[in-house]
């Protein structure tokens, strides 16, 4: 587990201990240890197939993944006792690598239902369609989005960049405590990356943590992380600060993987 690199004295939001998880009988996560405090930004990196995305999906409750060992506490409570929609209402948000298309359902209707559901769970006011329209248009400005997209079906026919913007917009609307962003940078050109990263940065707050799952260091040029973790073979093998990402950019992952294999356990920073 990584020691604190920066003085973020927020309370612990997420605590992952010895987490193992499998999909279709194959164990992907083999003992993840992670602590995330309010106000922090963590980047999770690692080679293909290492378990980065799996970790995000398991935390959000994807039904295809079975947790086989370990525990996760979110704000002190057992996360696995909650259904996926309850986790979302409790303040966990998953930004999808491949957002699902929902033909026939307008973005406006979908976003409002999501917003009102989460608001109701928090005991906060729900918005009628007109109020919500004002609210959502305001948030869309953060991401430089065309209001016309409200009338389009959810993600249907969206470009890669539009889908990712839509994910971040949903985050901006739902205002989660913990945002897990799964390869939000994949499929984005440099301009779109800047816009999306700008949207994420505006969401940084003292009471919110953000976990970025990413392949590339370039995202971290725009969203500066407090911690960088490297997952390999289903474990976090290295934790450092943003300089670790730069080092990975230079040296690749192999040196870490060899080191981890030799030691047979996570490598301390």
């Amino acid at each position: 587990m990584g020691k604190r690199m920066r003085n973020t004295d927020g309370k612990i939001l997420l605590e992952v201990r010895g987490l193992k998880a499998a999909v279709a009988g194959v164990e992907i996560l083999k003992g993840i240890e992670l602590a995330v405090r309010a106000g922090e930004v963590h980047a999770i990196m690692g080679p293909n197939g290492s378990g980065k995305s799996t970790l995000a999906k398991v935390l959000a409750g994807h039904p295809a993944y079975a947790t086989t060992a370990g525990e996760v506490r979110f704000e002190g409570a057992d996360l696995f006792a909650l259904a996926p929609e309850e986790r979302a209402r409790a303040g966990i948000f998953l930004g999808f690598q491949y957002p699902v298309e929902v033909p026939g359902v307008t973005n406006a209707a979908f976003l409002r239902l999501a917003y009102n559901t989460v608001q109701a769970a928090r005991g906060a006011d729900e918005l009628d369609p007109l109020e919500f329209d004002d609210f959502v248009r305001e948030r869309m400005k953060l991401l430089d989005m065309d209001p016309a997209f409200l009338g389009r079906s959810v993600n249907e026919g969206f470009s890669g960049g539009e889908k990712k913007r839509n994910e971040i917009l949903q985050m901006a609307i739902l205002e989660p405590r913990l945002a897990l962003l799964d390869e939000t940078d994949s499929g984005l050109d440099i301009d779109a990356l800047r816009v999306v990263a700008g949207g994420v940065n505006k969401m940084r707050a003292a009471d919110r943590a953000i976990v970025l799952v990413t392949h590339y260091q370039r995202l971290l040029n725009y969203i500066e992380p407090d911690f960088v973790h490297v997952i390999a073979g289903g474990r976090i093998v290295r934790t450092g600060d943003k300089s670790l990402a730069l080092e990975l950019e230079r040296r690749g992952y192999d040196w870490l993987l060899e080191g981890a294999k030799a030691a047979g356990k996570p490598v301390a920073a």
Partner: peptide
């Protein structure tokens, strides 16, 4: 799951 992850049952 996409709906659930947005709080929708």
């Amino acid at each position: 799951f996409y709906f659930a992850s947005r709080g929708i049952a």
